[in-house]
């Protein structure tokens, strides 16, 4: 190929930039018009943006909290507040009703009840399901919330207290109780006897069976004479087949006597607030075990 044919300069009347390196030159095409306009436009836009929105750090106006503020005084916090108040105003009617109605009366107001259950359900999913299971079915060490078996009580009032302040939590109003390690006091023999007796309770052990005497002495103050439990201490019923820890076999009961386990439930009042807790109470109540 003839090298002179490669020189585009001769085929076009654009001209070159004037740079020349070892015979190589550079064509001097102008930038496309549309591109130039967009470029200028962004500069104008930026100036307008600085004027309207917070933009420049360090340079502070009247505020120590650095940066220019812009004439709209926009902040993400104000924007958050606005978007929240939009939702709040949609909920306001029901929320206000909820605040002014005792939880007990909510049960008789279908619309408000519905509102509370739906709100409670979504709060439950985010905050409670990890421990109590997504349907409130519980797990080992975490009680089932949809049956009639309550450690501390299933009335609206008791539920409210439990959820607000927690159980053995950091809150000063928390529910609290301790099952003491009794094995050392009782001695090995007696521990075995009582364990067998308690394991039999749910299967209908009689009060004259072996171990009954020791049970009455050591355990009945909290768990009840017939193993019916005591809600003041959150002491579980031992005479039903529902167990917080394990399956209620002798071994499990023996280990509870030797080194008692204690469930901890966090307090929610500071995290969730009164309104959400009211909805949660109604929701948990609605799961089927409410009293």
């Amino acid at each position: 190929m003839n090298p002179s044919n490669n020189n585009i300069e001769t085929q076009d009347d654009i001209g070159t930039t004037g740079h020349e390196w070892d015979g190589i030159t550079e064509l001097n095409y102008p930038c496309p018009r549309w591109w130039v306009w967009i470029f200028l436009g962004t500069i104008v836009w930026a100036v307008g943006y600085w004027y309207i929105y917070p933009a420049w750090p360090v340079i502070s106006g009247d505020s120590e909290r650095g940066g220019t503020k812009g004439v709209m005084e926009w902040t993400q916090y104000k924007q958050l507040e606005e978007s929240q108040s939009e939702i709040f105003s949609r909920r306001a009617e029901n929320l206000e009703k909820l605040q002014n109605t005792s939880t007990k009366d909510v049960m008789d107001m279908p619309e408000l009840y519905e509102f509370a259950v739906v709100g409670g359900k979504s709060a439950f999913k985010e905050n409670c399901a990890q421990c109590h299971g997504s349907g409130g079915g519980g797990a080992k060490g975490y009680p089932n919330l949809n049956d009639d078996d309550w450690l501390w009580g299933g009335s609206l009032k008791e539920l409210s207290k439990t959820i607000k302040y927690g159980i053995r939590s950091d809150h000063k109003n928390t529910r609290n109780s301790v099952m003491p390690p009794l094995a050392a006091v009782m001695g090995k023999d007696s521990v075995t006897k009582v364990s067998r007796y308690v394991a039999g309770l749910s299967k209908g052990s009689s009060s004259t069976a072996e171990g009954a005497k020791e049970y009455k002495q050591m355990c009945s103050a909290c768990h009840g004479v017939n193993g019916e439990g005591n809600r003041i201490f959150g002491a579980p019923k031992l005479s039903d087949g529902i167990w917080l820890y394990g399956k209620g076999d002798e071994q499990q009961i023996e280990s509870q006597i030797k080194s008692p386990q204690h469930g901890v439930m966090p307090a929610w009042i500071d995290r969730l607030g009164e309104d959400t807790i009211k909805q949660l109470v109604v929701y948990v109540y609605s799961l089927g075990g409410g009293e």
Binding site: Q130, C131, M265, P266
Partner: peptide, 20 residues
């Protein structure tokens, strides 16, 4: 912080699928 009990964290770190 404070959302779960220590023992929940223990079990959850050891076997997350047990609870979730």
């Amino acid at each position: 912080g404070g959302k779960y009990s220590d023992s929940w964290h223990v079990q959850h770190m050891i076997n997350p699928q047990e609870y979730v």
